[in-house]
Amino acid sequence: MDMTDMNSAAATSPAGRRQGEVILDLQNISLRFGGVKALTDISFNIREHEVRAIIGPNGAGKSSMLNVINGVYHPQEGRIFFRGEERKKMEPHMAALQGIARTFQNIALFKGMSVLDNIMTGRNLKMKCNLFQQALWLGPALREEIAHREKVEEIVDFLEIQHIRKTPVGALPYGLQKRVDLGRALAMEPQILLLDEPMAGMNVEEKQDMCRFILDISDQFGTTIVLIEHDMGVVMDISDRVVVLDYGKKIGDGTPDEVRNNQDVINAYLGSGH
């Protein structure tokens, strides 16, 4: 790793970003699949408006952590507080209702639908018309559809994907699919946005674009962002605080600078003996 580059990155670290109250607090989370321990006794919190990164080697439990946050997995032990209130065991759609959105490591778009429709599904929770109104497509249903279409077009503009809005997502190149995935999550107007390796498999230019979008989201909408990423340069650049996992355990937590100088973290990444 290029140390000079990382130092300059630290200098531009967005310390000026507003950091609010703790919005999500995870306490002593443990998750097992049968006999396999995916997460062991992990505690950390997420503050409003910050960019929080989760890093760690492959198999460290990063994706499992996100899945715990948005209710796909249910930890056997531990407590989760959302805005100070303890969260009971919940299904993913309830997490969505609380304003937690996410993107996926292996893009999980609805590949039979167009870009517009994919992003429109993100508006789903906000659409109130019943089945009969939708069946007739008159009055309220039509008005609602148009109103949400306008919102979606704002997102399309924001992500600069106007030219592909009617293309089926299956036909899009990888980088654009990632962008649509982000757009769908944004359409939910989330309070917390979970990004699972948003830059994996991208080239440098695409990464730059994606970084710009993430920072813009944070700046313009004040969305809290939780990010898993392997590219250390990116992580150190854009995140406010970093939590480091290894083998399902937390080995470091702090600002990018603190984490970079943490001996455990260095060992985990470079092997002990350094």
Binding site: A96, L97, F110, M188
Partner: peptide, 13 residues
């Protein structure tokens, strides 16, 4: 959405 990717569908609510 359910047809194409049910887990993702659930995650967006």
């Amino acid at each position: 959405a359910i047809r194409d990717m049910d887990v993702a569908a659930e995650v967006i609510g």
